[in-house]
Design a binder for these strands. Structure first.
Lengths: 198, 198
DNA sequence: AAATTAAAAGACCGACCGGTCGTTTTGTCA
DNA sequence: TGACAAAACGACCGGTCGGTCTTTTAATTT
């Protein structure tokens, strides 16, 4: 890996952290450059425009999220263990204080939901993939006989993600010390309702 | 009501709409003034600073939200009818296409969750009140015998709000045509789980 | 209708925005 | 080690930001 590539990764990592706090649009190039101890033009040499920086920031975040949160959970055996591991890992990431701005995807979801452009397109595709992955993970649990046969797995994914959104809200905005327990209880309830007949 | 006051209301209404799209910070005074057909300084005469404008925008939105979404639901008899009416009205408001940026509170929750200041303080208090209101509405349903006696009403409120967050996400970002049904089904499931023994 | 006050306008400020450019430093490899 | 290219730099561009000022216009009030 050349030096340029290494710097580029440093930039994108820091950009994701700052953008989670300030927003993709609110993040300024000067601020990002300062945080990196780099000149603004030196930074800008890596990207053709701020738009491209935003898109690449989302891309890099997505890659890291998959590698650090999702992939480890897939080491668990399919079915309930894997289903729980995905949720647990996601929760742990949300609780992690070393990410001050929280999840970039959740922040960007609100920011980009009414803007058009490549950044939005990428985010939408990523979120569809993510929800699809949650759904398929539930599907496997059905196939394993861990969840009931007539379960609507897309509905399961919708509700699971709703709990994660609620966790993020209770934790970051309200700073509710019970946030983690509330999310865990909600997910347990969702699992329970997905086992027995509705 | 003097003319100044009327203009002030017009400003705060438009500010809430724009801030829901652009964010409280991303909203610029020049843009807001143009949208209102007013000069920037004419607008600014109503507020001592942008911070104050942001705070007053949140305040005005909160007042409108309570009057237009919550208050009508309280015309319903306490218990399940009122509980469902609150959720239904909130859902309807979320679906309303005439609010392009969606709910200002949800957007501001993400934007302000890691910033300190009076705007955040006001938002936190408002959200606590809102969740408290959801919880107490559930409590009344317990008292009426519509929901089971040992229900954790704060947990109920957490899960209900999670569904509303999921609805907002599926609707505005993903533009999922099934979003409303998903939210309705999720809420029905929550009610069902809150009736019978857990 | 005149006098008074409230509301809006317009010109302007320094700071910072995203972005460009020519130059200098630094790493790489023959 | 010397040559070449990649990477970072500092100065600068037009434009917009939040905010201040003085002046003009419009609404009240008597």
């Amino acid at each position: 890996m050349g030096k340029g590539e290494a710097t580029r990764e440093r930039i994108l990592y820091m950009a994701a952290r700052l953008a989670a706090r300030e927003g993709l649009e609110g993040l300024s190039l000067a601020q990002l450059a300062d945080s990196l101890g780099v000149s603004k033009s030196g930074l800008f040499a890596h990207f053709r425009s701020k738009q491209e920086l935003q898109l690449e920031t989302l891309r890099a975040f997505s890659t890291r999220f998959i590698a650090e949160v999702l992939r480890p959970a897939f080491a668990q055996p399919r079915g309930l263990p894997r289903l729980r591991a995905v949720f647990a890992n996601w929760t742990r990431r949300t609780l992690d204080r070393s990410f001050p701005g929280g999840c970039l995807f959740m922040a960007a979801s609100i920011e980009l939901d009414d803007r058009e452009g490549p950044a939005r397109d990428f985010l939408v595709q990523s979120m569809r993939d993510l929800l699809g992955l949650l759904s398929r993970t539930a599907r496997l649990a059905v196939d394993e006989g861990h969840l009931r046969k007539d379960l609507d797995c897309d509905q399961f994914a919708f509700e699971e993600y709703g709990i994660l959104l609620g966790l993020n809200h209770a934790l970051r905005l309200l700073r509710d010390p019970n946030a983690e327990r509330r999310a865990r209880d909600a997910f347990d309830g969702l699992i329970r309702a997905s086992i027995s007949r509705s």
